[in-house]
Amino acid sequence: MTWTPDKPIISIKDVRKSFGAVEVLKGVSLDVMKGEVICIIGPSGSGKSTLIRCINALNDIQSGSITVEGQEVHDPKLDKLELRKKVGMVFQQYNLFPHKTALQNVMMAPVKVLRQPKAEVEARARALLRKVRLEGKENSYPGELSGGQQQRVAIARSLAMNPDVMLFDEVTAALDPETVKEVLVTIRDLAAEGMTCVLVTHEMGFAREIADHVYFTDRGVIVEHAPPREFFEHPKDPRTRAFLSQVL
């Protein structure tokens, strides 16, 4: 069962996930094709973060199946490193390593985890920092960078592993309005290059502009999904309408 690019790169089928007695995902299914950008929106606590954390096995699931490039993520025999080389993730709180400079943050995983030669990794890391427009900040520590800059370092750090898929969990939610844009521009560039992206976001304008497909979650289920135009202009479900009228 080898994966070919005509099949979904991420395939989620009827996933259920509980924390203790609380069921957070109640049968979620969605497919992402290679090069696609999907946005997941929905009210707080609806399970968006939980869902994308399941994709790279940061959370386990109770039932259902998630495959990335045809490989079952929740297979106990799964080689986690193989999965995490394929799937990059960026978090709301950046989670940079505060004791390392921007450059070291980007270099660390390829050097320590993939054991790639340092000189080669450094060249790539510098190029990545340039790409996220952080030239000149290589030797700054996270504490010396603004939120937007830290988040772009975090994106570069994920990209350094050459992932096939990028997961973004509300990556602009902790940022000042002025710096939100610089991060969104970085993600847009990535999407334009054909990176497969799964974004959880509250930036409706951005979702509308960038997404190939928008999913709306509420209380652990996908209530509605559609291409952005249709989704934002003709939402069908009353819950979607209520949510959109609140946030737009």
Binding site: L58, R84, M89, N95, L96, F97, H99, K112, V113, S158
Partner: peptide, 24 residues
């Protein structure tokens, strides 16, 4: 979040401890 971001970069628990947590 430090553990999670290290895990998402492919670090094992031991590597995370040595490279990320202990220095901090």
């Amino acid at each position: 979040g430090q553990w999670e971001s290290a895990a998402s970069l492919g670090f094992t628990r031991r590597q995370t401890m040595i490279e990320v947590i202990l220095p901090q």
